[in-house]
């Protein structure tokens, strides 16, 4: 039954589920890396070396989480400021890379959470549906791809934090499920289940998204033509 809730309501309903995910970078460090010990001892040059060593990976993961956004620079910088301030609490209980990646995901999530809580932003507007027969705007493939990517991130935003984390790690960042399980401290089966339901939700969202409707029709058309070819 549909019911009117209390009146009026304003802000976005942000999920408060904690993301406990992190991202697996290509480079691994030992927990006892002397560089970390030097930074913990207050050596300024060690902080910079850490930054140089990890900045590419951090910015890439920030980008994967935020999607196309002008805030990738700011969030990447914020990650390193948090690294500098929190490094003293790193005791080597886990790999530094795991610690760093968790921090990266959490800072990116904080940014998204902050953006959602800004009352003046109505970023959940229904996108305008393309007119009948209209293709994606844009003269070239890169613009079209950019629009498709934005459409996908808009749908990913609707997933719960846990599902989104697993989906971004696995499908967009290419991290194997076993590694994700280690990162999010959950059984592999749980990771696979979250991934399955995340994708299932996205399939349903794609089917209902007007911005993706022309593309979806193309894919349906491809299926139909394959049927025709298969006919005896």
């Amino acid at each position: 039954m549909l019911s009117s809730a209390t009146l009026p309501a304003i802000t976005a309903n942000s999920s408060i589920d904690a993301i406990v995910a992190s991202v697996c970078f290509t480079r691994r460090m030992d927990a006892v890396d002397p560089l970390i010990l030097r930074a913990q001892a207050g050596e300024e040059s060690a902080f910079r070396e850490l930054f140089l060593r990890h900045r590419g990976d951090v910015s890439r993961v920030v980008f994967r989480v935020l999607g196309p956004s002008p805030d990738v620079d700011d969030v990447t910088q914020d990650v390193f400021i948090h690294v500098y301030r929190s490094l003293k609490s790193f005791r080597g209980d886990s790999k530094f890379s795991t610690w760093l990646y968790r921090l990266t995901i959490n800072v990116a999530r904080m940014h998204l959470r902050k953006a959602r809580s800004r009352p003046q932003i109505s970023d959940a507007q229904v996108p305008e549906a393309p007119r009948a027969g209209e293709e994606f705007d844009g003269p070239d493939e890169s613009l079209e791809r950019s629009q498709r990517v934005k459409a996908l991130y808009r749908l990913v935003e609707g997933l719960s934090d846990k599902k989104r984390a697993v989906l971004v790690l696995h499908d967009l960042e290419g991290v194997p499920a076993k590694q994700i399980a280690e990162i999010v401290e959950a059984p592999v089966l749980t990771v696979r289940t979250r991934l399955f339901y995340a994708r299932k939700e996205l399939y349903a969202a794609i089917a209902q998204d007007p911005a993706l409707a022309p593309l979806l029709e193309e894919f349906k058309g491809l299926l139909s033509s394959a049927d025709t070819k298969d006919e005896p």
Partner: peptide, 14 residues
Amino acid sequence: ASMRLYESLANDVK
């Protein structure tokens, strides 16, 4: 079709 479109979109992101 939705599944294949999603796969295509994920490839776009990557």
